[in-house]
Design a protein around this nucleic acid. Structure first.
Lengths: 351, 351
DNA sequence: TTGAAAGCGCTAACAA
DNA sequence: TTGTTAGCGCTTTCAA
């Protein structure tokens, strides 16, 4: 496989820069003819330093190409102006939109964001949490991959954190959620109102709150419409492959569904593939509503009805909460719930 | 806007953990009844330590919930087992696939990956490069956002780095590319062979190598087919909005194109939207080939013909090169070029 | 095999 | 306003 792709491989000569000693405060101090303390003060914009001296120091730093040593600074300061964002799937547009929200807010106040992809795996999440602790980041924003998340260690060390998208069981932390149970209920009610008879649901793993809530909302709607709950629910990983299998399985049932509620856009890809393979026409043979308004949702055939979540806002709100908590660890934790919006397109319109 | 979405906001009580002193090597040493040197050796798996002692140390560390202080360690070691990956767009599946490739390889050998989104902005890229230098990461993998990238400072400090997707002008570094000029030529030739008469091209900004190369390949094909180059080329940011405008502009031309080569999948979203708005039927009125096999490419109407790039492989190869360079800075730089594959679907089939 | 001690580069308390 | 100096927590000589 790999070799097939490689069509060209060339090597050149190397221009190593050997013995490139990295300049330190001392070097800058020597060049500017001041003490290291003054360099530190000048470079950190402290007001108690003579403007002329400050300028000389900055000049010297520039000349030398000085870049502060982060580990040394963080060691001394006992904190880094960095927040870690641990998301459960980099390939899900919902989470990348959250990342943008976090970044924009954090950058405004001089914080950097490092993005970690836990890939829906509690092990990887745990590993990144350890790294975040070890690197002594100022705070962590995360979408917990499962009910067994080990964020408790953040709390016990006093590291600030905020949960997004999914709450932390038994954890009394700041959290930013979406009322997806209500949204799922509305979406399902919409399908029923369109005249679909056997509405199914493909959702995420048990114990993942969004998956459970979307299923609960789906059941709420069925109950309200006095439908008996059919055996048309499938749970799987939040991935395309799992949803693909789930869809094939549902289609093979004797009483297969004539409509589906799908719990996220990554799953929707798998479902649409399955329908295509089976020659089932989406929107005609099977009505569809999926969570998340992916960039491509309106472009598929037929355009997908979606539950749009305010992903960017989630990230922005979470970042603001985190910064507030970093500034004041004693403030009471808040729970913010944002609303979602059902966008009706052709995939759920009865023909 | 924001307020509209907020439907619930509650506050609870806070359980702050005050004065939670973080355990250090000294604490572990005291508890295990050994010196800090032995703790360090034991925890780092050095062979020169008595197994019994080592066990006692590990036990003590566990009891205390000890986590090494990263900044202190990195300060002492003068290097962190971290690589920075700076990509030009987190919302582009091509780059997130690269990220997975990098992560998988890096994790195998105990390196962590931090992801930075330069958002196609040289300023942000520059900022992240500074952070990478300051944090003294072991190496950097980046897709340069433009020709004015400032990676030179990495070289001058001896920090290892690898360029992916786009080369660094005048830079003699490891680089992993795709032969997209050839791929663009094949894709364009395919459109011509299908009988399209006025093939246009929407590509990225001048100076971004992939954008230039894809345009060059497009022109290669036109020349080979003895077509005079029509005024059907548009350049814009690598974003949906830019491509949307470009497509509308092209459609408004007196001699508007009957086929388009689109330089990436993010742009394809904008183009498809534009076509939809103008009531132009993709694949019927206008033939389409786009770069990158996004997850949704086969699901739109009609399924998109694409130039599939080996994104995951690019990341994996780049990570291996970076690790090799970290281990040996004197090895000659290599240029690896991978091939792309044209996948023909309905959007480029002449009816 | 273990311990004592130095020092990585920076910032902040204290002195001048 | 500036300089001197201690020390953040770790690893790593060097000695025992």
């Amino acid at each position: 496989m790999t070799d097939l792709w490689v069509i060209h491989y060339s090597t050149g000569y190397c221009s190593v820069r050997k013995g490139a000693r990295v300049p330190t405060v001392s070097d800058v101090a020597a060049r500017a003819g001041v003490s290291t303390a003054t360099v530190s003060r000048a470079l950190n914009g402290k007001p108690t330093v003579d403007p002329d001296l400050a300028a000389r120091v900055r000049q010297a730093a520039d000349d030398l190409g000085y870049q502060p040593n982060g580990p040394a600074r963080n060691l001394r300061r006992q904190e880094a102006a960095v927040v870690a964002l641990i998301i459960s799937d980099v390939e899900n547009p919902f989470f990348t939109a959250i990342a943008r929200g976090v970044e924009d807010v954090a950058h405004e106040v001089g914080y950097s964001v490092v993005l970690c992809n836990s890939d829906e795996s509690v092990e990887k999440e745990n590993r990144y949490l350890d790294i975040a602790i070890q690197e002594r980041v100022a705070g962590v924003i995360l979408s917990p991959s499962g009910p067994t998340s080990t964020v408790a260690k953040l709390a016990s060390r006093g590291t600030a954190y905020v949960a997004v998208d999914r709450p932390l069981p038994g954890q009394d932390s700041d959290v930013v959620l979406v009322d997806t149970r209500l949204a799922a209920r509305e979406a399902t009610a919409h399908l029923i109102a369109q005249g679909y008879e056997r509405v199914g649901c493909i959702t995420g793993p048990a114990g993942v709150r969004t998956a459970d809530d979307r299923l609960a909302g789906y059941r709420d709607a069925l109950k309200a419409a006095r439908r008996r709950t059919p055996k048309l629910v499938r749970r799987t990983e939040y991935k395309a492959a799992g949803a693909h299998r789930a869809a094939l399985d549902l289609l093979a049932q004797p009483e297969s569904p004539d409509a589906l509620l799908i719990a996220n856009s990554v799953m929707a890809v798998g479902v649409l593939q399955a329908l295509q393979e089976q020659g089932v026409r989406a929107g005609r043979d099977v009505g569809l509503v999926t969570f998340d308004d992916a960039p491509w949702a309106a472009l598929v055939d037929p355009p997908l009805s979606v539950v749009a979540q305010p992903a960017y806002e989630i990230g922005a709100v979470a970042a603001r909460l985190l910064l507030a908590r970093i500034a004041d660890a004693t403030r009471p934790p808040t729970a913010t719930t944002l609303g979602a919006r059902l966008t009706k397109r052709a995939s759920s319109r009865r023909h």
